[in-house]
Simulated scan of single mutants.
Amino acid sequence: MENALWDRLSVEVHALVDGLVSAGRNVHALAVMREHAGLPTPSLHECVDLLDQRFTVLRQGPTSS
């Protein structure tokens, strides 16, 4: 998945965001993204776009090679 904001987050934060998205805790996931992305702080719009992308990826499940 290509997303500049996702690339700025650590692997640990990826797991945290995915867990929050899977649990339906979207507002908390947005807060975590903004808190851990560093400067410049991403806009809410950027975070919502990433949230939508992660929801889609997680809903699709693992892909087979």
Rank of each mutant, 00 (worst) to 15 (best):
N26M: 10
T41I: 03
S64T: 13
M33Q: 00
G61V: 12
Q53V: 02
D49I: 08
G61R: 07
E2T: 09
G24P: 06
T56E: 15
N3W: 03
V57G: 05
R34F: 03
H14A: 09
A15Y: 04
H36N: 14
G61H: 04
V57L: 10
V21Y: 02
V27F: 08
E46G: 05
N26L: 11
V32S: 04
W6R: 02
T56V: 14
S22N: 12
L20N: 02
G19C: 10
D18H: 03
N26E: 10
D49H: 13
H45N: 13
T63M: 12
L9Y: 00
V32F: 01
A23F: 13
L58P: 04
P40D: 04
P42C: 09
S43G: 09
V11N: 12
G38N: 08
L50M: 01
L16P: 04
S64G: 15
C47Y: 01
F55A: 08
G61D: 05
G61Q: 14
Q60M: 12
V57E: 08
L5A: 14
H28F: 08
V32Q: 03
T41L: 02
V27A: 14
S43V: 06
D49S: 14
S43P: 03
V32R: 01
E46Y: 05
H36A: 11
Q53Y: 04
A15T: 07
N26K: 13
R25L: 10
W6L: 06
V21F: 05
D49N: 13
L44V: 15
E35A: 09
D7Q: 07
D52W: 12
V13A: 08
R25C: 07
V13K: 01
R59I: 10
H45G: 10
L16K: 13
F55G: 05
L58W: 06
R25E: 04
N3I: 02
T56W: 13
A29I: 03
P42E: 07
L50Y: 00
P62V: 06
A29W: 02
D52S: 15
T63R: 14
P42G: 06
V48L: 15
S43E: 04
E12P: 08
A15L: 08
L20Q: 04
A29G: 06
V32G: 01
H28N: 14
R25N: 13
V48Y: 10
T41K: 02
S64V: 09
Q60C: 13
L5S: 07
V48M: 15
V32P: 04
V48I: 15
E46Q: 13
C47H: 01
V32L: 05
E46N: 09
L5Y: 09
L58H: 07
H36S: 15
A4L: 15
R25H: 12
Q53P: 05
W6I: 01
N3V: 02
D18T: 06
A37P: 01
L9N: 01
H36V: 13
A29Q: 01
A37V: 01
M33E: 00
M1C: 11
P62M: 07
A15H: 01
Q60T: 11
T63A: 15
G24A: 08
